[in-house]
C-alpha cells in the first residue's frame, strides 16, 4: 500500500482525528494489517502524536500490527456459542492448524482470531472465514470446513 492511497483515505475522512478508527479500518482492509510506516505517516498527516495512533491500533481487537494470512478465521466466543461448545471448536481448529489464537500459519494461509460475539447467536457455535459463515459448528465439522480453502 503506497502513501497516495493513504492520502486518499485520509482525505475521504476530511483529515480529522475523530475518524481515526474508520481511517485505520480502511487502511487495514487494503493493506491486510497496519504497517508501522503507514501509522507514522497517518500520525504526521493528522498532526497528532504517533503514540495516540498506536494507542488506537493496539486497543481495538480488529486491528493487527502483524501481517495476517490470506484467510482470516474468526471463531466466535460469545456466550451463546460458548454454552454450545465453542471452546472445543476453537481447540480443534488450533490443533488442525498447529497455531494458537492470534497466530498465522507459516504459509500465511490462515490467521486464527477469536471474537467476543459476532451477533449471529442463533447460529452458534459460529466460525467466520473471511465473509463466509459456518454455523452450528462442532469438532467433527472443522476439518471439512478448512478444506474449503
Amino acid at each position: 500500500m503506497d502513501f497516495d492511497r493513504v492520502d486518499k483515505i485520509l482525505k475521504a475522512y476530511g483529515m480529522k482525528e475523530t475518524h481515526l478508527v474508520s481511517i485505520l479500518l480502511d487502511i487495514q482492509t487494503e493493506a491486510n494489517f497496519l504497517p508501522r510506516e503507514i501509522l507514522s505517516y497517518v500520525a504526521k498527516k493528522l498532526g497528532i502524536p504517533l503514540s495516540q495512533v498506536c494507542r488506537f491500533a493496539t486497543f481495538y481487537k480488529a486491528f493487527s500490527l502483524k501481517p495476517r494470512g490470506r484467510h482470516v478465521i474468526k471463531t466466535c466466543l460469545g456466550t451463546a456459542c460458548h454454552v454450545r461448545g465453542a471452546v472445543k471448536v476453537l481447540q480443534t481448529i488450533e490443533r488442525e492448524l498447529g497455531i494458537r489464537d492470534g497466530d498465522t500459519t507459516r504459509d500465511f494461509k490462515f490467521t486464527l482470531e477469536t471474537v467476543n460475539c459476532l451477533g449471529a447467536c442463533a447460529l452458534g457455535p459460529l466460525v467466520v472465514i473471511d465473509n463466509d459463515y459456518y454455523g452450528q459448528m462442532n469438532t467433527t465439522k472443522v476439518p471439512k470446513m478448512l478444506k474449503d480453502y
Binding site: K16, E17, T18, H19, L20, V21, S22, L24, L25, I48, Q52, F56, F59, Y60, K61, A62, F63, V115, N116
Partner: peptide
C-alpha cells in the same frame, strides 16, 4: 462512526473519547 471491537466503548464516556480520537 465505526467501532473496531472493544466492549468497553459501549460505556458512554469511553465511547465519547473514542469518537474524539483520544
Amino acid at each position: 462512526h465505526k467501532a473496531a471491537g472493544a466492549f468497553v466503548c459501549g460505556e458512554e464516556t469511553a465511547l465519547i473519547s473514542s469518537i474524539e480520537g483520544k
